[in-house]
């Protein structure tokens, strides 16, 4: 009981700190944190699959990137898209893609599942890379941020970076709360049961395929939400947005933080992005520009993390006070 309260206090503390950040931080940091929170939403959506349902997807960026492209389509040239219209549309697009890909990949499991999710994401990559539908390999610009107008009234403007920040913070909190509710629901219990022992779930009478597919679609839609706002913030979408480095990166965030916890996904996203920034800022050593070759350090860091942190960053805390998984959290 005490443990849960500590976690809640820490979470609330973080939320308040994030809410106060724009008062003290410069524009650069506000935008940086906006980006980090978007990646945290993306990572949580993947955590639902990897950490809770036990489906290791290496193609999650496809849903992230597709929604970005959807925004680009919805905002042709210099016209801004309507947020209330284009956001649901983009998320529905990602969900639809997840439905199609999920129906295929969920026929496999284990190692196959990893390879097949990667391969189908690559297929989407080539769709945008090789054809002219959205600028090909060069990508496409989103010139204007979506407008949040309802019948002429505009409650906030995404062109304002502080407004953008608060919208994303709100979404982060909403998605977190939504997933917490979901995980406590009968559906949430079923997907965790599937991760622990899918065969037994079937023999108890659950049609596990349906639950996995529903989870895949929901996760795809949430990744789409993150991708939509990331495209809006960055003003640009390219095939790399849905490339496999993006998928690998977000998987790393989930696992680094500690999967199956949601908190871990957020922690992982923030840590990875700050690390990236830290590595990029390193000075040259001799002739080698370390900052430019930051991926070298990141790769080495990932290798070390796998070997040394079997339960992610949150697992470090658990070393101090072990906590059995009771299925009631």
């Amino acid at each position: 009981m005490r443990k849960i309260r500590v976690a809640t206090v820490v979470l609330l503390g973080c939320l308040i700190a994030l809410a106060l950040l724009p008062l003290v931080a410069e524009k650069y940091y506000i935008q940086l944190f906006t980006k980090m929170m978007l990646m945290a939403i993306f990572a949580m959506s993947l955590d639902l699959l990897v950490g809770y349902t036990g489906l290791v997807s290496l193609g999650h960026a496809a849903f992230f990137g597709l929604a970005g492209y959807a925004l680009a389509f919805a905002a042709p040239q210099y016209q801004a898209a309507n947020l209330w219209l284009s956001l649901p549309l983009a998320m529905a697009g990602s969900a639809a893609l997840a439905l199609v890909i999920g129906a295929l990949v969920l026929r496999t499991s284990g190692i196959y599942f990893i390879m097949v999710t990667l391969a189908f994401a690559q297929m989407v990559f080539f769709l945008f890379h090789d054809t002219k539908i959205a600028g090909g390999a060069d990508g496409i610009y989103v010139y204007a941020k979506p407008v949040a107008a309802i019948a002429g009234w505009e409650p906030f403007s995404l062109e304002n970076h502080t407004h953008f920040y608060f919208v994303v913070l709100l979404l982060l909190a909403l998605v977190y709360a939504l997933l917490r509710v979901l995980l406590a629901s009968p559906f949430g219990r079923v997907i965790v049961g599937i991760r622990v022992n899918e065969q037994r779930m079937r023999s108890l009478g659950y049609r596990t395929f349906r639950y996995k597919l529903a989870c895949f679609v929901l996760s795809g839609a949430l990744a789409g939400m993150a991708g939509y706002f990331a495209a809006a913030q960055f003003g640009f979408v390219s095939p790399d947005t849905l490339g496999w480095h993006q998928s690998g990166g977000v998987l790393m965030m989930v696992i680094l933080g500690g999967m199956g916890t949601l908190n871990g996904a957020i922690l992982g996203a923030f840590t990875m992005m700050l690390l990236e920034l830290g590595f990029q800022g390193l000075p040259a050593v001799g002739e080698v520009d370390i900052g430019k070759h930051w991926q070298l350090l990141m790769g080495g860091f990932i290798v070390c993390a796998v070997l040394l942190l079997p339960h992610g960053l949150l697992g470090l805390g658990r070393l101090v006070s072990p906590r059995p998984e009771t299925g009631s959290d």
């Binding site: 990897v50 290791v56 290496l58 284990g110 190692i111 990893i114 690998g248 998987l251 790393m252 696992i255 999967m259 070759h293 991926q295 070298l296 990141m298 790769g299 080495g300 860091f301 990932i302 290798v303 993390a305 796998v306 070997l307 079997p310």
Partner: peptide
């Protein structure tokens, strides 16, 4: 498998950047 994916993904970054 998850950790195999990650470690070898890390290796890709190392090889590519080297």
């Amino acid at each position: 498998h998850l950790y195999q994916v990650l470690l070898t993904y890390g290796l890709i970054l190392v090889f590519e950047e080297l």
